[in-house]
Design a protein around this nucleic acid. Structure first.
Lengths: 244, 244
DNA sequence: GAGTGGTCTAGACCACTAC
DNA sequence: TAGTGGTCTAGACCACTCG
């Protein structure tokens, strides 16, 4: 019973199926309203969602235009490696190299809003794509969620999926810092690259809907594995992680 | 005469001045409507803008909350190095290393939607921050805008500014691909780093409001100069380039 | 000048939060 | 249970595009 969602879904599908090819104009707002039996306001809400997903653009006086075919959900997109890989039709793999509880570092305590000396669960995972090492993930979970994380089968390829199923909508906010670094000795050995070769780094802090930090992470990608794709249309940025 | 803009500006200022500190609840929508003499719909439009800027967040049933103080305008933010640097209180500099018209490569023709063999204006600029080499920018402008670019004083530190003043709102859409690369011989020499050391790369294509591509660029940053900051709140990504 | 999207209003009901 | 944001409607007028 969320009408604008229904309209958005119908349009998204028409675009995905090619009924509305890239560059084509959409029906007018009035037509869409009549077609779906809703008011124009609801149609505009649906169109705003598609615009925020990078699928359409608009200019006053001219019809809405199809600008892309791929929907991107930037939060899920950036957070779960396994979900992303599968949506690309690639085979994700994951191996837990180490996992231990320890006191938070000063930096971690700040990021996760923990008391000094609070506990974190530190996990180092090597992730692969179609059998090749692709990324090294160093994640620190806040102590209050550590039990739930430890209960997850370490062979599960998506910790995010499991947490979501067990605890509901845990993540609502995230911040990512993207830059480049030189591979250290350990990075190089695990990823199978030469020492000091370039890696793409994404550091992340995720929080609950109420703003409570859950985990922070330092992910390092071999070059040539992914790029981050920022598509900005009429001031609305749309984010995606892209395979190469 | 754009009421929602007025409401958004007032709230933005209240947040910037600290009258509404981070974490504080906003007045209710009904209160804001009464206060500004507008309808609730207009207030909601204003709040949606602030949410898209990463300044506030909301949950059904609870009041809107202030979540940040810095507005980010992701398109301008990513496109103009000089504008960005000045907003950070840093001193940008720029030097044109080479500038020449030549036929577009196949890749450029595709990105800029030019006819095969169409002309581009290729410019290589070395950009600095507070006197230090920071970034190498290889830009190719579509032939139809080359005249305007050539008329710009090569010492102007912001080509984007000048184009904007001369031609109006030239840019409305952009796509950025962010990854890491190893510095080539030429990159290393110009940026003052060792060969094959890591660089943060951002490749860009910008287009007019009507979707016509204007320029494409390959920017390479020394590591430690900037990070890209992606702040995602309730599904809305907000982008910024951050100095280190 | 006709068509179309952008803005705004006034009122209604529902879903969720917080007390 | 009262308060508050989320959704939806019906109608109006304006600003811009396009033939």
């Amino acid at each position: 019973m969320v009408l604008h969602r229904g309209v958005a879904d119908a349009l998204r599908q028409a675009i995905a199926l090619g009924a509305l090819p890239v560059g084509a104009p959409l029906p007018t707002e009035a037509e869409l309203a009549a077609e779906h039996g809703v008011s124009r306001g609801t149609v505009r809400h649906a169109l705003a969602i598609l615009a925020a997903e990078g699928l359409i653009s608009s200019r006053q006086g001219a019809r809405h235009l199809v600008r892309g075919t791929e929907r991107t959900q930037s939060l899920a997109e950036l957070r779960s490696f396994a979900q992303w890989a599968r949506r690309q039709g690639r085979q994700p793999s994951g191996e837990v190299i180490s996992m231990a509880r320890r006191p938070a570092t000063v930096r971690e305590a700040g990021l996760l809003q923990l008391d000094p000396g609070g506990e974190v669960l530190a996990v180092l995972r090597l992730r692969g794509l179609d059998g090749e090492p692709a990324m090294l993930e160093r994640t620190s979970y806040a102590g209050w969620i550590a039990d739930a994380v430890e209960r997850i089968d370490p062979r599960a390829d998506s910790v995010t999926d499991r947490l979501h199923h067990e605890l509901g909508a845990v993540f609502a906010h995230a911040e990512h810092l993207i830059d480049a670094v030189a591979a250290g000795v350990r990075d190089a050995a695990l990823l199978g690259v030469r020492r000091s070769s370039p890696l793409l780094r994404a550091r992340r802090v995720s929080a609950t809907p109420a703003g409570r930090p859950v985990e922070c992470s330092d992910d390092r990608y071999r070059i040539g594995v992914v790029t981050f794709d920022i598509h900005t249309t009429s001031g609305v940025p749309v984010l995606a992680r892209r395979a190469l």
